[in-house]
Design a protein around this nucleic acid. Sequence first.
DNA 1: TATGAATGAGGGTTCATTCAT
DNA 2: TATGAATGAACCCTCATTCAT
Lengths: 220, 220, 220, 220
Amino acid sequence: MTNSLSSELPPAGPEHSRGNVRRGADKRERLVAAARRVIYEQGVETTTLAHIAAAADVPLGNVYYYFKTKDALVSAVIESYRQSYGVLSAELAQQESPVGRLKALVQFLTSRRDQLATYGCPIGSLSSELDKREDALRSDAATILAGLIDWAEVQFRAMGREDARELAVALIAAYEGIALLAATLQDPTLISTEGGRLLRWIDSLNQLPSGNPPRAETTG
Amino acid sequence: MTNSLSSELPPAGPEHSRGNVRRGADKRERLVAAARRVIYEQGVETTTLAHIAAAADVPLGNVYYYFKTKDALVSAVIESYRQSYGVLSAELAQQESPVGRLKALVQFLTSRRDQLATYGCPIGSLSSELDKREDALRSDAATILAGLIDWAEVQFRAMGREDARELAVALIAAYEGIALLAATLQDPTLISTEGGRLLRWIDSLNQLPSGNPPRAETTG
Amino acid sequence: MTNSLSSELPPAGPEHSRGNVRRGADKRERLVAAARRVIYEQGVETTTLAHIAAAADVPLGNVYYYFKTKDALVSAVIESYRQSYGVLSAELAQQESPVGRLKALVQFLTSRRDQLATYGCPIGSLSSELDKREDALRSDAATILAGLIDWAEVQFRAMGREDARELAVALIAAYEGIALLAATLQDPTLISTEGGRLLRWIDSLNQLPSGNPPRAETTG
Amino acid sequence: MTNSLSSELPPAGPEHSRGNVRRGADKRERLVAAARRVIYEQGVETTTLAHIAAAADVPLGNVYYYFKTKDALVSAVIESYRQSYGVLSAELAQQESPVGRLKALVQFLTSRRDQLATYGCPIGSLSSELDKREDALRSDAATILAGLIDWAEVQFRAMGREDARELAVALIAAYEGIALLAATLQDPTLISTEGGRLLRWIDSLNQLPSGNPPRAETTG
DNA sequence: TATGAATGAGGGTTCATTCAT
DNA sequence: TATGAATGAACCCTCATTCAT
């Protein structure tokens, strides 16, 4: 199930597919993909436009034709993440029950454990860095995590939980928190273990009354 | 109890207490305090030595008398955090039971909610930024979060939990995760709510026999 | 014969030919020429990139577009000397006999006496300074003197001297030694006199059978 | 014979003889000795007062009590070399004939071959570096090489050579030149070979009439 | 005399951004 | 559109020199 998902979130992008001429139209995409990857691995502040340009195989001077400033490119990266999470939620929507969808999210987390243990969560580390600013960029990045929380809240609500918001926040906090710990301690097993714990936790929430009766679910 | 604690972790240090000349002995401390504050508010990469020097009211050139490089100063900041957490654990040790100590940690978290919702967790955001590097600094910073987890594990162990490690990781992950969310969404209430949830969760763990998988509490 | 030579080795390059804009292509050359001149006159360590940039009429920041580091620029200067000595040896090759070539070298030395008596031999003083380092630059610069010796050895060999290597070393040592003395004592006549002595010495070697220890000439 | 000599010229000085309190009087000497050594190994420009102070085990601030400026310390180093050459000439004076004295000088050169092949001639490299300046320091350093030449001239004159000056310049040029080559190519054998050649050259000068009959000599 | 602690003027280097073509 | 080449502000760091004690 998470097959397709597992390749969504991680920063993708052409490594160096030289040889055939690419239309100018996709240069922008290549830049965003390269920026996403490089920024994920190095952080916004450390990453250089020259570095991104090189990774995208685009002349430095040309970058400014597509992005007025470095911040504009970072903003495009954020937008790119937004799209990725759109794809993700579409994938998750294939699950028939809210519990299944939530558990699929956790399994998606677990599937990325090695990557997360190296550079952390792309969204989390980006948000963490941008939290130090007072830009539009900060609030821009914030919408992604907010969207994730909202999505989880919808699921918990569908389970009949009146504390859906609280649970959603708790779930995403655990998600981001374990990604941080795994990256900091460079230990992917932390994610597996915590993933298992979260799966059980979600199950436990489903079995207990909370107000409205939860819908029956098909997936375990 | 957390009265004193609440002033430990947050970056301390005189903002600009000009007027009376301070002897050189404490200059180093002033620099570390200023660095801690400024780095907390702006991030490592964005923070300039000139900025730190100004915040500490020390001539830029003089900084290098105390710290050979910027990294050395950052390292001193990390060490400063290590000491702060030493103080914190001493405070927490005043609680008679492990449950009390764990809950005191959560209360300490809650007491800092406004600060956390502004710049995030000092340790978490610092670690997140340093996770992008491969320095000694990265592993240096990692020891602090590792220490926190170890501390929590000891408490859970003292509660008779055989899954103490897993619980400790989960607790600190929740701690760091909620700090990140609060900062990103700029919403301190997230911390209060999650703090409450964690307190109940800790209580629930205390009532369950060890060996069984810990069950998260269901509702508030 | 040495007319053209005399303008090869000495640092060349426009001093400040302002007025007509030069295209970027030759900027690199201008920088190398300026660096060569300034370094020759001031030494590597004393010379500032800002100084070189000013001498080349290039904005300081722009220097780094052409040379990644100061050392890279110094390396380019060394390469520039290598080329100059290539030109020199081509000129010397016009002499029909090895004796003629060796004597032409000495005459080249003599023709530069005023310059040498002011700042010393460009290669010698550069090598002397770099000898204090353990860089790649040190060995880089060394290849030039090594090349000179090799060239002289070839000539002596062509004269039938079995002690060609020893003679070559002696000749270049005398060459560099007299340049140092002339510069230190600021006396160009030292070079003229020693030049004459070396010419006679070369002639005397030509008359003696190889295998016998070379005998220096006795008087002028 | 050159036993004592061989330890005169090379930069000497206490390495780190801590443990017993030294009188303040010799601090100056320690500084000069340390400066001599460090400058010999690193060059004037590269050498830091802090480095010298550390090598001499003298607090940095204290250096300025003995030497008003860095240049003053360099000047003292030059003076120190002057004294060393005084000692050297005294040693050489023990030879009964001028030829013996000249050959003893060459043997002194040869005895230092390993050191010379590493850092070059202390006087030569110092002069070479100072030749780039227009200081008093430049002419100050020049007096040492001038003194050496003068000394050699006296010897050649005593041999009855009317071209004594020219020969003296040639000898010292060969001396400095071979030291430069050996250091640049990092090959001590160059010095041995050239030393042998110079010895034979001196002998050959002694056997040939030049005007005045040379004095008989005792040593070979 | 002695010394730890300033001080401040650079020096090498980076980099977002702009310019000219 | 595209791009090589500028540009200049800023950053980290060094170091001779001075100061206060």
